[in-house]
């Protein structure tokens, strides 16, 4: 993917993020994610039925990278099984941390494959995933 296309995908997801805005529904799992090193602060909620992710929503204040990553992540995860989501999540984190990963699993999330060149933005790209991880861990 060339860098113009990556930038375009990130920008579109920042300007019009998918599923921004929370709903009142007790059947959703919930998690907040923020970091000590930046000022992003996002709330997530996720609905799982029969081991399938039915919906993820988010809201809050965050930079272009965190917001777009939340949006792309949500699009990638909805409809997948919990196991599939865990697998994507693992590979995505490996990509951001510059470890070995399977890019074929990541689809649009590959737009962040060069984010490690900006170390202070790695955290922004990881925040939404950390929220999903928290919510999945709460299932145990």
């Amino acid at each position: 993917m060339n860098s113009d296309l990556k930038r375009e995908i990130i920008f579109d997801n920042y300007k019009e993020p998918m599923n921004k805005g929370l709903v009142e529904d007790e059947s959703y799992l919930k998690a907040n994610t923020k970091s000590d090193s930046c000022i992003d602060n996002l709330d997530f909620m996720m609905k799982i039925e029969d081991g399938i992710v039915k919906d993820i929503r988010f809201d809050g204040e965050a930079c272009a990278i965190s917001t777009s990553a939340a949006s792309i992540m949500i699009r990638s995860f909805i409809g997948k099984s919990v196991e599939e989501v865990k697998n994507i999540l693992e590979n995505y984190v490996a990509m951001i941390e510059e470890k070995e990963y399977n890019s074929e699993l990541l689809g649009e999330l590959n737009v962040y494959d060069e984010i490690s060149k900006q170390p202070n933005r790695k955290n922004c790209a990881l925040l939404p995933m950390q929220a999903v991880e928290k919510m999945l861990n709460s299932l145990k």
């Binding site: 000022i39 965050a62 930079c63 272009a64 202070n120 922004c124």
Partner: peptide, 21 residues
């Protein structure tokens, strides 16, 4: 524009400012 994106932008030109609360 989110404050942190602005501070990242300015950093690109070697200008250090603070974003946040």
């Amino acid at each position: 524009v989110f404050a942190q994106d602005t501070s990242m932008y300015l950093n690109h030109y070697g200008i250090a400012v603070r974003a946040g609360n």
